[in-house]
Computed example of a mutant assay.
Amino acid sequence: MSTDNPLTTLYKEIDGSKISTDIYLPQSDVSSPQKYPVVIDIHGGSFMLGHSRMVSILQINDCLDRGWIVLVPNHRLCPGVNLLDGPMQDIRDLLSWTHAGHLDEFLRDQGPYRADLEKVAVFGTSSGGHLALSLGFNVPKPAKAILSLYGAVNFSSPLWRKPLPHVDAKLPTNLSKEFLNQIYDQKPIPTDSSVSLEGQTESGVSKGPDFSKPRDAFAFTQIAKGTVLDAIYPTGITTDPQFGLVDPIRNVGRNFPPTYIVHGQADTMVPIDLSRDLLKRLKEEGVLCGMTEVPGEEHTFAAMMQVGSRTWWLQREGFDFLEGVIGKGPR
């Protein structure tokens, strides 16, 4: 299957939002149905930006080479819905949709592919890393293994309230509150945006945000001002100092799935100390875990790395970890 033209199906519809997932299938030389591990790949975008085509095709190809079925879902974007009821619930519903056999129903007309429901793993970048980790707690059947690439965790850290001057410097000076708040008028709640935090656009060309669009302007304003949590956190529980319903680090227990972390040491948007905090918590609970720190890399490096580079090989250690848990698919 060409990664330029994945299969697509709806997995959820709510309040007019039609939520789809892309499906990538590995090459297969078998004729009879075989079970393949499933890996969910969740895009980044600070919970407010991006869509399913804004992920690293290099990472998808690596997964396919390992014989895995890859699902790349969309989810509703904040702030029209909050983090808990929107992105987290949508991704959890995708996992339930898969475990309920609906992926297999879709695949029956696509060749010998069947989902091995005992081997469903997940990874994601940035906010997608957080959503990947959210499949490790408060779900009926957690993911088998999790890979977080510079994922958003430890929301009680003061680092989440820290303004980012290098982002603020890119913002126009004439962004009014009325203009920014147009984002709340988008109905049904969108599941895609024209640009992601990773830098990709709908055409795959890397460029910056379009500040003439309320969503781009709103998202980057929150990032610049250190107010992302105010924009996405569930209404009515903002006084919760531990972010207990949404923060993976507050929900790590001994039964948490095996988890690996990859993070750039030069990350100025989600500082690496946040992932180090998560690693410490995982180790305290005796969870099978590990972490690779990538020297010199900023946030969103997965979108710009080249196959064969040092960064490529280092981040690939996370996928090797997943393979150590779910194995390879049939050849």
Rank of each mutant, 00 (worst) to 15 (best):
T227F: 09
P165W: 04
S275Q: 12
A132L: 04
L107W: 07
H166V: 05
V294Y: 03
S46K: 00
E284N: 09
G44I: 04
L94V: 02
Y150G: 01
R108V: 15
G151R: 05
F179G: 13
D192G: 13
S96M: 03
R114E: 14
I326A: 07
Q242W: 08
G199H: 04
F319W: 06
S56Q: 11
G80R: 08
N154A: 01
D277W: 06
I69R: 05
I23R: 04
D116W: 01
P241D: 10
L58T: 02
L77G: 02
R281C: 06
A132H: 08
N181D: 14
L159E: 06
S31M: 12
G50A: 01
S20N: 15
V38L: 00
W68Q: 00
I237V: 15
D230K: 14
H166C: 06
N74T: 07
K213R: 14
G290K: 05
H51V: 03
K328G: 14
P172V: 08
G199E: 01
P209M: 05
Y233A: 08
S309F: 11
R254K: 15
W312E: 04
M54H: 07
Q200I: 02
V55D: 02
P234D: 13
L175H: 11
L25F: 10
D240A: 02
L314F: 05
D90K: 06
P257F: 01
L64H: 08
A100G: 12
Y11S: 08
L84A: 14
F47N: 06
L197K: 00
E118S: 07
L322I: 15
Q27L: 15
D41W: 02
I60N: 10
M1C: 10
Q242P: 00
R161Q: 13
V55A: 02
F321W: 01
L7F: 09
D247C: 00
L77I: 06
L83T: 02
T3I: 15
K162I: 01
P112S: 08
D109G: 09
M269Q: 12
R254G: 06
G151S: 14
K35S: 10
V205K: 15
V294W: 07
G324S: 15
P140K: 08
A217W: 00
I14T: 09
K119F: 05
G67C: 11
V55I: 15
S46F: 03
V270F: 11
I272S: 13
I183H: 02
I91Y: 02
L117M: 11
M291V: 13
S148C: 08
S31H: 13
T238C: 14
S194I: 07
T268D: 12
Q242T: 14
V167I: 13
P6I: 10
L133W: 04
F319A: 03
Q222V: 01
S193A: 10
M54D: 08
T98P: 01
G286Q: 09
Y11Q: 13
L159F: 03
V38M: 00
P234R: 10
V153A: 08
K328P: 07
E178A: 15
R254M: 11
L288F: 14
F301Y: 15
G67E: 13
E198I: 04
L171M: 14
D210I: 12
V307E: 15
A100R: 14
E105P: 05
V252F: 04
G151M: 01
R331V: 05
V72M: 01
S212Q: 15
L133A: 13
G290V: 08
